[in-house]
């Protein structure tokens, strides 16, 4: 037998309304309510609220489930027309590049600058068309650059391209010709996208070169056995300026504490 006046907490009143009161307290709470009209009024009020809320939305749960929620369909990977279009563009680009590389005399070995550039342009074509998932890890996540640096095996310093209204969206890890490749995407307010691809190369060093592949083009160079490819719309002057800026920032890092998160961590 519990004392009628044993204190009942506010939490217990809520639990009583929500049907979550332990059975052994129910009698106590009910007795309490019988002698405490203020609390009884609150309980009644909360019950009425709950009833109004449930009535308001009951119909939604009773509607037939719309076809868009067909799980079998949702489980399938997205193959929108956009993806198909991107694949077609990619196939065309590969064709163009294959032709282009065929002309370029010697067959490029797997780690040649040409092979890296071809990979970079393919990735560029494929991912700039992606609306929803252009990057795997967004630039907002601090581990983006350390992670990709580690995978590629060098300290990547991603350039600040604000001068060209380009903001780093993020990046992803890709297979490169002879090892992992880091792929970064930049975007300007009008939605134009530039990408920077970095992967290990067997060459130690090359000059900055331009390569056009149809609607897109790339500027590439190799430094310390890492190949870098800056890809964007086929506008040689602009691409050259952007690549030059990227090159200078990536190869000649400004003093520490620069505004952009230049990565110089642990590394090897």
């Amino acid at each position: 037998m519990t004392d009628r006046d044993s204190p009942v907490t506010a939490d217990e009143l809520h639990a009583y309304v929500d049907g979550m009161l332990p059975a052994d307290r129910k009698g106590t709470v009910e007795a309490w309510l019988a002698s405490h009209p203020d609390d009884a009024a609150r309980v009644a009020e909360w019950r009425a609220q709950a009833e109004v809320v449930r009535n308001r939305y009951r119909a939604v749960a009773e509607e037939p489930v719309p076809a868009r929620f067909d799980l079998a369909k949702l489980a399938r990977p997205r193959t929108s027309w956009r993806m198909i279009a991107a694949a077609a563009v990619l196939a065309a680009a590969i064709g163009v590049l294959a032709g282009w590389m065929g002309r370029a005399a010697s067959t490029p070995g797997p780690a040649s600058v040409e092979a890296i550039t071809a990979e970079a342009l393919s990735a560029h074509q494929l991912y700039i068309a992606e609306v929803r998932h252009p990057v795997e890890v967004s630039a907002a996540e601090q581990h983006l650059i350390p992670w990709l640096s580690k995978r590629v095996g060098t300290n990547l310093r991603m350039p600040d391209l604000n001068e060209y209204s380009l903001k780093l969206l993020g990046g992803r890890l890709l297979p490169g010709p002879i090892g992992p490749a880091a792929f970064f995407m930049y975007e300007n307010p009008s939605g134009e996208r530039f990408t920077i691809y970095c992967s290990r190369s067997k060459k130690a060093r090359t000059a900055l070169r331009y390569q056009s592949g149809g609607e897109v083009a790339a500027m590439h160079w190799v430094e310390s056995e890492i190949g870098y490819v800056v890809s964007g719309p086929n506008d040689r002057d602009r691409l050259a300026k952007i690549a030059q800026s990227a090159y200078e920032q990536m190869e000649n890092p400004p003093s520490r504490g620069a505004a952009f998160p230049l990565i110089s961590r642990k590394g090897s």
């Binding site: 809320v53 308001r56 939305y57 009951r58 939604v60 749960a61 009773e62 509607e63 489930v65 719309p66 868009r68 929620f69 799980l71 949702l74």
Partner: peptide, 28 residues
């Protein structure tokens, strides 16, 4: 769970379209 998720999303957003988008994202 879909009917209840739709109900919950609708009550959260008060926007049928938005609510169903949230449910779809949740399911995916």
């Amino acid at each position: 769970a879909i009917p209840a998720l739709r109900r919950y999303a609708r009550a959260l957003t008060h926007d049928a379209e938005l609510a169903d988008d949230l449910v779809q994202d949740t399911l995916v």
